[in-house]
Design a protein around this nucleic acid. Structure first.
Length: 586
DNA sequence: CCAGTTTTA
């Protein structure tokens, strides 16, 4: 780990880190690097953070939910612990906003800014980057990006290019177009090697971007926002910034998440440009006008104002925050988001009529590192005799659709592999079959070779194995163990086969996300107000179904897709969620 | 009916 800190004698200090599955800290640790999410978890056990004298929150300008919440809680902690030092690092554009946020409440002894905080500006370590704008707006930024890349390649000195686009589809299109252009290059000219980079790309395929290009080869990395802050690549001299990003927006009125392509913020544009100046002076080509840049928002719209807040609300309540509307947020989330979250938590039994966390259910749900609906399902599993199965399914759900991958871009092979594991009940049990086969010493042997043969993502499945272990540990500590009914073969137990027990159990957590397939293959929700489509990765993209519950809903390009579906019977909905469906029918 | 921005516990 390389850390530079002015002239301090830091080499004496022992650095250690802690992430979800890796804690290498000890009593000797002086400085600990950890994620904001983990620190929030630590606050459950140590609310005043007594183990720390200084807390530094990095990249606060990104305005992620967990860093926003962390800042709010740190402000609270400071009232009880004036000795604590809080350092917030952020793009200079909004430093003032953060300082204002930490202003003590009325009646305190510290009233002047300089008494409670200071803004310190630190010169960057990067080289200068020349910024170029277009003289007029572009209507097709992908075409423009391809032209710009080709022109850099033919006219500019050596150095790799980083191009920002919004998603996988644009990455694929761009790379195809570049490939066409390369074919037109005069013989003997330098090669341009386009490389994709996005989070959903399997790790081994991501690694190519870090490899040094061969002689006479210039890398062109076509990336999503992952290359803006999460991943840093050396040797980038040229950045092409299309000026757009894909952002989540949650609509509390219908409970649907949307993925919208929106203009980036000034902070993002600055960050992207900075990626060109890490090794030597670089150039950044913004595919928009200077006027358009000036009109950009200073910082990204806070995530807390555009997300499903059920998980956050549950966690805050578990930290003892009673009034979620009045909580001291850095930016207040719309109250509709909070109400929607409380509604859901109430229907799941995590919150009572007084708006308080229930014991033990609500507390247990908050402690599990799963979204509320899945947490509730897993906690119900022992009573359905499918504890072991739901542990595996829950772990597989955290992979968010990355279990299957194409190895040579061969989609047909992937679909064939999927069919090998598919069952008529739907996607959850299909994923369960994948997990079972992967961990079976006689079948998958947890081997990468077997995964390649079955279009499966080896690293992702290994992650599922460790998530499952972690979940089991959590449940062990709650005193919830393997159910008496458990048996991993799909035989009749208690008159109901394993698949049906899983289906019923899923209904107890996902009853609020039910839909029915119509004859044309589309789905309608209970009220019939929204038309939904099975996501192409679902086995119901082709097959017929009647009632289903779904794990996720998301609108993309004007169409609402549901992911991870399992068939249920209509009667189960009213059987397991009578209150919910009574209210809805009015 | 044809497809997931990014994180995290």
């Amino acid at each position: 780990m390389s850390v530079r800190a002015g002239g301090w004698a830091l080499q004496l200090i022992i650095f250690r880190y802690s992430i979800r599955f890796e804690d290498v800290t000890s009593e000797k640790t002086k400085i600990k690097f950890l994620t904001d999410g983990l620190l929030l978890r630590e606050m459950l056990i140590d609310p005043l953070l007594k183990r720390y004298s200084v807390v530094m929150v990095d990249e606060a300008h990104e305005r992620s939910i967990s860093s926003d919440i962390l800042l709010s809680l740190l402000k609270k902690v400071l009232r009880a612990r004036p000795d604590l030092r809080v350092v917030v690092s952020s793009a200079t554009l909004d430093a003032e906003k953060f300082l204002d946020f930490f202003a003590p409440d009325e009646g305190g002894t510290l009233t002047k800014k300089e008494e409670y905080g200071t803004i310190v500006s630190i010169e960057g370590r990067t080289h200068p980057v020349d910024i170029f704008y277009t003289s007029s707006p572009t209507n097709n930024y992908i075409e423009k990006a391809v032209d710009t890349a080709m022109s850099i390649h033919t006219n500019e000195a050596d150095g790799d290019i980083l191009l920002f686009v919004t998603g996988r589809e644009e990455i694929d299109d761009t790379i195809d177009m570049i490939a066409d252009h390369i074919a037109d290059l005069p013989p003997g000219s330098k090669t341009l090697q386009p490389l994709p980079l996005y989070a959903g790309l399997p790790i081994d395929q991501q690694m190519y971007v870090f490899q040094q290009a061969g002689e006479n080869v210039r890398k062109l990395i076509v990336a999503t926002n992952i290359a803006e802050a999460s991943v840093t690549i050396d040797g980038i001299i040229y950045v092409i910034d299309t000026g757009y990003v894909k952002l989540r927006a949650y609509d509390p009125a219908v409970g649907i998440e949307r993925l919208n392509v929106v203009p980036i913020s000034k902070a993002s544009a600055t960050q992207r440009a900075g990626r060109a100046g890490r090794t030597r002076p670089g150039k950044c080509y913004r595919l928009y006008t200077e006027g358009a840049f000036e009109a950009l928002e200073p910082a990204t719209f806070p995530e807390i104002q555009r997300s499903n807040l059920a998980p956050v609300v549950l966690q805050l309540m578990n930290l003892g925050i009673q009034n979620l509307i009045r909580f001291d947020y850095l930016s207040n989330p719309p109250s509709a988001l909070i109400i929607r979250a409380l509604d859901l938590l109430f229907s799941l039994g995590a919150v009572d009529v007084h708006g308080r966390l229930t014991k033990p259910l609500g507390i247990r749900m908050a402690e599990l590192p799963l979204e509320p609906m899945l947490a509730r399902t897993l906690l119900n599993a022992p009573s359905f005799g499918c504890f072991s199965e739901m542990l595996s399914i829950s772990a597989m759900m955290t992979l968010q659709g990355t279990a299957f991958v194409t190895h040579d871009g061969n989609q047909k092979l992937l679909e064939k592999a999927r069919r090998r594991f598919a069952v008529k009940e739907g996607d959850h049990i299909t994923l369960y079959n994948v997990y079972q086969a992967f961990t079976n010493p006689a079948v998958g042997k947890q081997s990468s070779q077997w995964c390649r043969e079955n279009s499966l993502n080896y690293k992702a499945l290994l992650k599922a194995v460790s998530v499952r272990k972690q979940l089991r540990n959590y449940l062990d500590r709650m005193g919830i163990q393997e159910d008496a009914l458990a048996s991993s073969d799909v035989t009749k137990v208690g008159g109901i086969d394993m698949a049906e027990r899983v289906q019923r159990c899923l209904t107890t957590g996902f009853f609020a996300q039910a839909a029915r397939m119509k004859s044309d293959g589309s789905f309608v929700t209970i009220g019939g107000e929204t038309v939904l489509w099975a996501h192409p990765s679902s086995i119901f993209f082709h097959r017929k179904a009647d009632w289903v519950i779904y794990h996720e809903i998301q609108e993309t390009k004007g169409k609402v897709y549901i992911r991870d579906l399992t068939t249920v019977e209509m009667d189960w909905l009213t059987e397991y969620a009578p209150e919910y469906y009574k209210v809805k029918q009015k």
